[in-house]
Structures are given as structure tokens and as C-alpha cells.
Nucleic acid binder design. Structure first.
Length: 207
DNA sequence: CCTTCGATACTC
DNA sequence: AGTATCGAAGGA
């Protein structure tokens, strides 16, 4: 039996959970990814969070129990996956930004044909695709008996000295300076960590 | 390696 | 109108 992380792991402060998720293995739909990069979003108190402006049909899952997936659709074509954290009502979550495929390579390759193995789950939308996640899986639990996937602790413990932090990617500051907290966590030296991109606003559009 | 930029449709 | 992105194209 795999050693699945219990709901109590996720029902803690989002910054603690985000840091400890590094090196953990997420399994879903036949593919296992070892997480190398994540970001924390602190719900209603965080201008960078989708939940900052309160409840909506899209963000409903974030307000519920920990250990469930919050999957959103963005840029007209991409899905990104989060794991809900904290007590119900806090609406905090950890965005899964990148990982290394460690099992289910054939299925992963079928979902993203023609890409190098390193890039299979490099970037949040690529990771979601590799795990077969769409809006249809919003609310899917990774804990408990009815789970539709699982999260396991690292096989070999993560060396704390390799953990890095920095500003979150693509959070442009639309909510003000507060959206640039250093709440991105990654493992130094991992080739699967996504390239940092500065937020870019579309120009040339006239309303 | 780096940079810029278009695709695309949901959300508020 | 803005977006928690990606991949192609072109330059160094």
C-alpha cells in the first residue's frame, strides 16, 4: 500500500504545506510526478489569490476542506491544478507548478506527445495535462477513502538547503504590491523547475 | 541561452 | 479587459 498523506497534512498553514510538498509524489490517472516547484496562495488575505474577491462558482472549492483539487482554466486554453489547504473557509491553496515524471512515462508521453521527458510536467499547465486534469476534476479529493488520486511523502527526504523561495510567477501586481510575496518554492538544481517569466500584459488592444 | 508575441475563451 | 501559460520564432 502506498503511504498516502492524510488530510491533516493539508489542513495547516499554506506556507508550511507548500514547502513540505516539495519532493512529494502526486499520483493521478496512471502518472506519478515528483514535485519540484510550487506556489502558495493565501485565500482572502492574498491579493494574488483567485479567492481574494470572495466566493464565486470558479473558486468555490477553495473555500472547502483541504486535500481537494482546485483546477482552473486560463488563457483560453490551459488548465492549472492546486491542492486546497488550511481549515475550511480560509480558501488557501498550493499551485503545482512543476515536477519530474517518476512513473507512468508512457501515459504521460501519450498526453503530451513529442516533448522531452524533462518538459513533461515543467510548468503548471503542462503538469496538469500530464496528470490528465481539467475543470472536470475540480473538487477531486486526494485524501480519504474516496480519493481520486494520492500524494505521498518523498522517498528520500528533501535536503532543506536546496529549497529556494522567490516571487510568484505571472502575478502581475493587479492587486497591489502585496501580490509579490516570495511564496514560490522550488528545489535548487532541478532541471524540471519552470523558467521564471515576468508577468506581461497584452498591449495593442483598444476598447 | 535570451527575448518578444500570438493563440484562445473564461471570468467578473 | 485581464488572465497563477505555452511554444514558436528570431537574435546573441
Amino acid at each position: 500500500m502506498p503511504t498516502r498523506l492524510p488530510v491533516q497534512f493539508f489542513t495547516r498553514d499554506v506556507l508550511v504545506v507548500a514547502r513540505e510538498l516539495l519532493g512529494c509524489r502526486v499520483t493521478r490517472a496512471g502518472v506519478t510526478v515528483r514535485l519540484t516547484e510550487v506556489e502558495a496562495y493565501a485565500g482572502g488575505t492574498d491579493p494574488g489569490s483567485h479567492a481574494f474577491r470572495g466566493r464565486s462558482p470558479r473558486t468555490e472549492v477553495m473555500f472547502g476542506p483541504a486535500g481537494r483539487l482546485y483546477v482552473y482554466f486560463t488563457y483560453g486554453m490551459h488548465h492549472c491544478a492546486n491542492i486546497v489547504t488550511g481549515e475550511p473557509g480560509t480558501a488557501s491553496a498550493v499551485l503545482l507548478r512543476a515536477g519530474e515524471v517518476v512513473a507512468g512515462h508512457e501515459l504521460a508521453a501519450a498526453r503530451r506527445p513529442g516533448v522531452r521527458e524533462r518538459d513533461q510536467a515543467r510548468g503548471p499547465a503542462n503538469l496538469a495535462t500530464t496528470l490528465g486534469l481539467t475543470r472536470a476534476h475540480d473538487g477531486l479529493s486526494l485524501v480519504g477513502a474516496r480519493a481520486g488520486g494520492r500524494v505521498e511523502p518523498p522517498v528520500t527526504p528533501v535536503d532543506a538547503a536546496t529549497i529556494r523561495t522567490g516571487p510568484r510567477v505571472g502575478v502581475s501586481g493587479a492587486g497591489g504590491d502585496g501580490s509579490t510575496y516570495p511564496w514560490r518554492f522550488w528545489l535548487d538544481g532541478e532541471p524540471t523547475v519552470s523558467a521564471y517569466r515576468v508577468a506581461r500584459t497584452r498591449n495593442g488592444t483598444v476598447g
